[in-house]
């Protein structure tokens, strides 16, 4: 997977976020402050502009630029969280021109660790980690089993979807939604939902 693969992925995320802006905002309106869709859309629009203004020459640089831009531009909690996730991936991949599926699994694991450390959340707290952590785990297992890239990314996407769906009955223990206590039960976590979009765009970037 080369730089083009990663810029295609990020472009795909930007497109998916724009298309799902209202859906994400509706999920956030139920248990948050109704800005997740607008915030992420603003963030990824800025990412698109940043990538166009200074085209990165490695996957790692593309991811780091994405993360830095998200931290500066999103405005909500998802900025520092996703920003850290992408910056961690960029840091792991360094300036290597090509990334193996195993490298990508390592990068996703680093993203999970970074998000966990920054937000202090664990799985089951009804956050984006509930989708991201299973996705990273599924990708690692698929890579270890020698699964071809498209199928490995399919497995990661499926795990993210299942993880996001499983947030519905949970009570939020982190972030703004945690102020709602039991009122947060019965709604899908918006961060987990946007993580599914990110994993779906990753799957799409692999084609096939």
């Amino acid at each position: 997977m080369d730089t083009r693969f990663f810029t295609t992925w990020i472009e795909g995320i930007a497109k998916a976020v724009a298309e799902n802006r209202e859906h994400l905002t509706a999920l956030d309106a139920a248990i948050g402050d109704a800005d997740h869709g607008a915030n992420l859309d603003r963030g990824f629009t800025a990412v698109r502009e940043a990538l166009a203004a200074a085209p990165p020459d490695s996957p790692g640089k593309a991811l780091t630029l994405t993360g830095t831009t998200l931290i500066r531009k999103v405005g909500g909690a998802s900025g520092p969280l996703y920003g850290t996730a992408f910056r961690q991936m960029g840091s792991v991949l360094g300036s290597a021109p090509d990334v193996t599926p195993s490298d990508l699994a390592t990068a996703l694991e680093a993203a999970v660790a970074g998000v966990r450390k920054l937000g202090g959340a664990t799985e089951g707290d009804k956050t984006l980690l509930d989708a991201l952590a299973p996705a990273a785990g599924a990708l690692r297992r698929a890579v270890q089993n020698g699964t071809k890239t498209e199928d490995a990314l399919d497995a990661a996407l499926t795990a993210a979807r299942e993880g996001a769906r499983a947030t519905i009955p949970l009570q939020a223990r982190k972030g703004r939604a945690s102020y709602l206590g039991e009122r947060s039960i019965g709604h899908e976590d918006p961060g987990a939902a946007s993580t599914v979009l990110i994993l779906a765009a990753l799957r799409d970037a692999a084609g096939g």
Partner: peptide
């Protein structure tokens, strides 16, 4: 105050 501002401060 809360949420995202805490995470921004942590960074």
């Amino acid at each position: 105050d809360m949420g995202g501002s805490v995470l921004t401060a942590r960074l």
